[in-house]
């Protein structure tokens, strides 16, 4: 496993685009968080905005960048034919995929931590000026607050799990364009369906099985009892999706010719 991880790390590290993509993760996370904060005002104690969720809105955008990184990590090899060399050098294909997942998770985790910390800091600076004051029931965002810490740590885990999910999908689909389409369809299909279906039972069911909706329940800091799924079980749903995708990808990689 050590050999595989070393090889995969060298490949990821030496790709020219990796650095830029990794940089884009924190930049976009903070940028959308700032935009969302600046566009929202809390006029009274009853404004019912979830300040923590608002500050971490950027995760919804940076997950797309995480998807690019994850998908390219595997489809890039199929495009260039390098995958044949890889599997010749390291015939334990399942292990190779595992190593890829591990190698991908590391940098994603670091970039996600930077983005999430930046978002919390930006929220701390911007939100009080937009009416999110202690007088309206919003203490200053701080990682010592258990709810904020859960949302922040959860968002980092969320992005990391998204990377693993995308890697699994890419291993199944193999073509980069098609993999991107499948991954993004998966991200945004459920939110739209939940919005469009008017039956509340269907809405709750869709929310519970959706990788993005259930996964992002971890960001909630208020109205927790109204969530169709709890914060940690929600993240568990995403973890299940990621594990299933990686397992299916691994099996297919073993069974198929390259």
């Amino acid at each position: 496993m050590k050999r595989e991880i070393h090889a995969e790390w060298t490949k990821l590290r030496t790709l020219p685009g990796t650095g830029w993509v990794l940089l884009a993760i924190p930049v976009l996370t903070v940028a959308l968080g700032v935009a969302a904060g600046a566009a929202t005002t809390c006029a009274s104690a009853r404004c019912n905005h979830d300040a923590v969720k608002l500050a971490l809105t950027g995760v919804q955008l940076s997950q797309v960048v995480v998807a690019v990184l994850a998908v390219l990590a595997i489809t890039g090899e199929h495009t260039t034919g390098l995958i044949r060399t890889t599997f010749t050098a390291m015939p334990r294909r399942f292990t190779v995929l595992g190593a890829k997942a591990a190698v991908l998770a590391g940098p994603t985790l670091v970039a996600a931590i930077a983005g999430v910390l930046g978002s919390v800091l930006a929220g701390r600076l911007i939100l009080p000026g937009r009416g999110f004051t202690p007088a309206h029931g919003y203490p200053l965002l701080s990682l010592t607050d258990g709810l904020v810490l859960r949302a922040a740590a959860g968002s980092v885990l969320y992005l990391t799990l998204i990377a693993v999910l995308c890697l699994g999908v890419a291993a199944i689909v193999r073509d980069s364009a098609a993999a991107m389409g499948v991954v993004l369809g998966l991200f945004y299909l459920f939110p739209i369906l939940i919005h469009l279906v008017s039956d509340p039972d269907w809405q709750r069911l869709l929310f519970r099985i959706s990788p993005t909706n259930a996964g992002l329940a971890i960001q909630s800091s208020m109205n927790l009892d109204l969530l169709p799924i709890g914060p940690w079980p929600g993240l568990g749903v995403l973890a299940a999706w990621a594990a299933a995708a990686l397992l299916a990808g691994g099996l297919l990689v073993r069974l198929r010719d390259v």
Binding site: L61, V64, V65, L72, T75, S176, G181, L184, P191, H195
Partner: peptide
């Protein structure tokens, strides 16, 4: 991959984020 993501990010994602009401 990058082209697909860019195209989806500019056309589809804003629509989803705005109509599925996660944004203010």
């Amino acid at each position: 991959a990058v082209a697909v993501i860019t195209a989806i990010a500019v056309i589809v994602v804003p629509h989803v984020l705005t109509t599925a009401s996660v944004l203010p």
